[in-house]
Design a protein around this nucleic acid. Sequence first.
DNA 1: CAATAGATGTCCT
DNA 2: GGACATCTATTGG
Length: 215
Amino acid sequence: MAALEAPTVPPQGPVRLGRRLPRSFFARPSTAVGPELLGRVLVRELPDGTRLAARLVEVEAYQEGDPASHSFRGRTPRNEVMFGRPGHLYVYFTYGMHFCSNIVTGSNGEGSAVLLRAAEPIAGLEVMADHRGLETPRLLCSGPARFTQAFGIGRPDNGTDLVRSQSLYLLSGEPAPARAIARSTRVGVTVGVERRWRFFVRESPFVSPGRPATG
DNA sequence: CAATAGATGTCCT
DNA sequence: GGACATCTATTGG
């Protein structure tokens, strides 16, 4: 694919974009897909041609039978996409003001997904700053609602197929090696806390400030 | 630094 | 009515 525009700040490491991840990558349990998403690159192409890109550094897995998951009590109009085919984007509105983004995993009808919690911006930082109303690169995508806002993702993007969309997709990037990945309990959940399904890149300054980095 | 208040849709009891 | 997969500004140590 075409080269991305030069980032405003140097990324933490080399940026290999690679190729789009196939449906089969997502068609596995969220707890398996989650850690393997770290180091992957989410790309957004805006109508004006601007390209936004960021490398995932923090995610959380959610599943059916998991009391912290939106899918726990079955389908609703809001979580419908979560029960659909893997590889689609599940966007939800929360706390009366914020949107958060998930990637649907597992098999069709299953109700599992991975919440995108934080990323390291690598292209389009000026537009992200515009969306966020701040400049500091570290604060652009370091939280699920921040990340979603930086990318300009909202209701219309709910249900987008990341495997086929020309404007929102996920590239293989450079997967984080197992030794660089830490796990902890999930942020902001009060049930299902025994599930340590938050996965993040240990040394990344772009991880959200949500919680202690329980290795 | 830490703690807290305030913004307020959607789903739940 | 209350909880919630959150963020920001403000206040106080």
